[in-house]
């Protein structure tokens, strides 16, 4: 006799085998739950360079839906606390998720009476763990992230982080197309860590503006409107929004030689 009233009137396990609970637990929706397999709305390159006393970083304001320039006023440089800015490229919804995660982190950290604000290296470590954990669940946050700021030793800090949890640091950093187009220009200004001591804020800023122009010329997913941030260890963060790529030339390149069958060796 079956003593469990919940099993009365059901097919007998001994005869028909155990009931497969996946059937009753199955979701009654059109699609199964899915992990991110590709980015949807995307932001293109973030570029950054160190100078003697800090870092200059820039990213444009475009959110692309494939080849469609879908959103034209996306802010991809996110300040975190008083001395960190996080620049994010890749999927915009994941960007906004990270933005919220960082905001939550700060609120949580402020609960303790004594203030122990996060520095740039702490934010970078946290994002690295977050991105690596998500890739390990095969459910990545589809972004490349540049963390720029001042670290716990009060020195400029610049590090890169991507959807796989791969992390590295360098005097010049760029995501996406910027890695191919901007990095060679930026490395002319600061190639080694030792070079950084000789780079002024103005030189760094100029190199970033130049790189943003080249990126707008050559990257079809870029726009001419961008934000630029300067993080200085003495004067802190200064944000410049609504900048435009200046002094472009779209003239016919009549004086340029060396293309196609005109090439001379």
């Amino acid at each position: 006799m079956e003593h469990d009233p919940f099993k009365w009137g059901r097919p007998d396990n001994a005869t028909y085998g155990d009931y497969d609970y996946r059937i009753s637990n199955a979701k009654n929706t059109e699609f199964p739950s899915m992990h991110t397999q590709q980015p949807i709305v995307t932001g293109t390159s973030v570029i950054a360079i160190k100078y003697k006393n800090g870092i200059v970083m820039a990213a444009d304001n475009l959110g692309s839906y494939g080849s469609l320039a879908r959103f034209s006023n996306i802010e991809r440089l996110i300040p975190v606390g008083k001395d960190t800015v996080v620049g994010i490229s890749g999927d915009i919804s994941d960007l906004q998720y990270i933005e919220r995660a960082l905001d939550e982190l700060e609120v949580e950290n402020d609960y303790d009476g004594a203030s122990h604000p996060f520095k740039a290296n702490h934010i970078h470590e946290y994002l690295n763990k977050l991105l690596y954990q998500r890739r390990s669940k095969l459910n990545p946050l589809w972004n490349a992230v540049v963390v720029a700021g001042i670290n716990s030793d009060n020195e400029p800090f610049l590090a890169h982080n991507d959807l796989l949890g791969v992390q590295f640091s360098s005097p010049t950093l760029a995501t996406g197309f910027g890695a191919h187009l901007a990095i060679p220009l930026l490395r002319k200004v600061a190639d080694k860590e030792e070079d950084v001591a000789h780079v002024t804020k103005e030189q760094a800023r100029e190199a970033i503006l130049q790189s943003m122009k080249v990126l707008f010329y050559r990257d079809a997913r870029s726009s001419n409107r961008f934000s630029l941030v300067t993080i200085d260890k003495d004067t802190g963060i200064s944000f410049e929004k609504d900048l435009k790529v200046e002094n472009m030339s779209w003239k016919y390149a009549e004086t340029i030689k060396g293309y196609g069958n005109l090439q001379k060796f």
Binding site: S169, S170, A179, H180, K192
Partner: peptide
Amino acid sequence: YSINSRFQ
């Protein structure tokens, strides 16, 4: 083919 960092 990209060099991410020369000193890591």
